[in-house]
């Protein structure tokens, strides 16, 4: 997994609450058996005017000019500014994969759905939860100022605005450590193999039916 330390990037505002993972990446693309290639179909139904299917040349599809992602001033964005309960619904990790493949590495919102939030960290992405007031203020600034960039500093747990104002954010220490160091969760857990074996040995005594062979 890629480490996330600091990021300075253009901000894309998506001013809509309860954006669900079906909207982030529609189901027809979930048939892929790969982890990559979801960027061109991120927000597919809002982004294009036609119906998309896997295997199409998405660069040839008609764009919805009203959708914020298609506006020239936001091309190349790396930070998504969103509203409350972002990523609700399905557990599909294709949602963070699509955002990442598009180029988004940090999402700022007042709140996130639990599974989506968790999935971001598994992909070197940083979801930042800030208060409604701060998010309102950021939306106003992004919309007022073309080329609006933010600097995200994970070790310092702060976001720096163009005028130098800083906003601090919370993150669980374990998640921060993994992200900053780009650690592989599976390798970390396998370091605890002995503990897992000991747990299993205890459980086999307490609850042997959990280990019985199926009939």
């Amino acid at each position: 997994m890629d480490a996330f330390i600091t990021l300075r990037g253009l901000v894309l505002p998506l001013d809509r609450a309860n954006v669900d993972t079906d909207a982030i990446i529609p189901k027809q693309y979930l048939k892929s058996i790969k982890r990559s290639g979801f960027g061109p179909t991120l927000f597919d139904e809002w982004r294009y005017l036609d119906h998309g299917e896997p295997g199409m040349d998405h660069s040839a599809r008609p764009l919805n000019p009203d959708f914020v992602l298609n506006q020239s001033r936001y091309q190349g964005a790396q930070i998504l500014l969103a509203r409350a309960n972002f990523g609700c619904g399905s557990s599909r990790e294709h949602a963070p994969w699509a955002l990442l493949d598009y180029g988004i590495r940090c999402i700022i919102a007042p709140s996130f759905a639990d599974i989506f939030y968790n999935n971001c960290f598994k992909n070197g992405m940083l979801p930042v939860a800030l208060s409604d007031e701060i998010v309102d203020d950021l939306f106003a600034q992004v919309e007022a100022q073309e080329g609006y960039e933010l600097e995200v500093d994970l070790p310092a747990q702060r976001i720096v605005q163009p005028d130098g104002t800083t906003v601090e954010f919370d993150i669980e220490p374990g998640r921060k450590h993994s992200l900053v160091n780009g650690l592989d969760d599976i390798a970390l857990t396998l370091e605890k193999t002995e503990l897992i074996r000991e747990y299993e040995a205890r459980r086999k005594v307490d609850a042997p039916w959990l280990f019985a062979e199926s009939r």
Partner: peptide
Amino acid sequence: FGIGTSEVEHVLATQCLRSA
């Protein structure tokens, strides 16, 4: 509870999840 695909791999490989 539901998990993402990275966690599916994690559970397959370790029988555990990192969680709070």
